[in-house]
């Protein structure tokens, strides 16, 4: 059982890194685009085309991330289906029980399912990795932009 829990932590570290690497590619594209803007101010037509291409690429990679995460999640979900991966040291409140006791037999609510531990891991590890790599939106941006700049919880789909 401990092996399972550690495996889930490892999985969530891996997926968090995957997401950040994909984002780094995007960010790189962004900076290139800015340089272009300075250099070819007159060629606005070309810039427009570039922008369109860029947003297309961005959209593609966003779809790729979403798709990959959904596929990964459903794969792990079926691998850990019906398995107790951890023992909770507390009784979860009723509306969390649906998550923490998903697809588990019996009604011992201190048993913890894969999805609950995975979500917790993602919440902590992903944010910290973002912060470490410097991809977290700045405080001012997240305050002003609200939902727009908030990290999309795409992997929970």
């Amino acid at each position: 059982m401990w092996g399972d829990s550690l495996l889930i932590v490892f999985i969530s570290i891996c997926t968090a890194f995957l997401g950040e690497v994909e984002k780094r590619k995007e960010a790189h594209g962004d900076s290139l685009d800015k340089q272009h803007k300075k250099k070819i101010e007159r060629e606005e037509e070309r810039l427009k085309n570039n922008n369109r291409d860029l947003s297309l690429v961005k959209m593609k990679s966003m779809f790729a991330i979403g798709f990959a995460f959904t596929a990964l999640l459903s794969m792990f979900n079926s691998i850990f289906d019906g398995r107790v991966v951890a023992k909770l040291p507390f009784h979860p409140i009723s509306w969390i029980q649906g998550l923490s006791h998903r697809n588990l037999p019996g009604d011992n609510y201190t048993d913890c399912s894969f999805i609950f531990l995975y979500i917790l891991c993602t919440m902590s590890i992903r944010q910290n990795i973002q912060k470490l790599l410097g991809f977290a939106p700045s405080r001012a941006a997240s305050k002003q932009g609200g939902a727009l700049f908030a990290t999309p919880p795409s992997q929970f789909k």
Binding site: W2, A86, C112, C121, M123, S124, Q127, N128
Partner: peptide, 18 residues
């Protein structure tokens, strides 16, 4: 984030030992 990290370490250590 800190709360989630706390829960993860708590649950994992608890699972491993008890």
């Amino acid at each position: 984030t800190a709360f989630a990290g706390f829960l993860v370490t708590w649950i994992i250590i608890y699972t491993g030992l008890h």
